[in-house]
């Protein structure tokens, strides 16, 4: 079970209190009725699903009930940062550099014994 820091309660609480709410930083258009099919497709259907850092929304549903954003590594499940809704997207390069070594799961065997790089390769920066 993950520990998640709620930026509103300013407390680290168990995952049971939270619910994931999908990818973050996908804004609904103020004039959605006039959006092109392509733009609506991007807004509603397309998600980045990265192997690496994802920005996603969580709700502290059994706590303060607030929605907030998080940067989480999908390989290690490690939360790099949580921040309030409406705050800007944090700098990914800095976050990744601070995050420490990645887990080895899913690495090809010939890379298994490689020394961890200072900066992790991250795909799908979105």
């Amino acid at each position: 079970m993950l520990l998640i820091h709620c930026p509103y309660c300013d407390e680290e609480r168990p995952e049971l209190e939270f619910r994931n709410a999908g990818e973050a930083h996908i804004a609904r258009s103020n004039n959605i009725a006039a959006e092109s099919d392509e733009d609506f497709e991007k807004f509603f259907f397309i998600r980045s699903n990265p192997k690496g850092v994802i920005f996603e929304r969580w709700r502290h549903i059994h706590g303060c009930a607030r929605f907030f954003n998080a940067a989480r590594d999908t390989i290690t499940d490690r939360f790099l940062l949580t921040y309030k809704a409406g705050e800007p997207k944090p700098d990914l390069t800095k976050l990744a550099a601070d995050a420490g070594p990645a887990a080895w799961a899913n690495r090809p065997p010939d890379q298994l014994n490689e020394k961890p790089k200072a900066k992790r390769p991250t795909k799908g920066e979105a």
Binding site: P101, A103, W104, R107
Partner: peptide, 18 residues
């Protein structure tokens, strides 16, 4: 954690901690 193969003793040992 990522295990590392120790060639001298032919065994996998703890390598990089996660």
């Amino acid at each position: 954690g990522k295990v590392a193969f120790d060639d001298a003793t032919k065994r996998f040992l703890p390598g990089t901690y996660a």
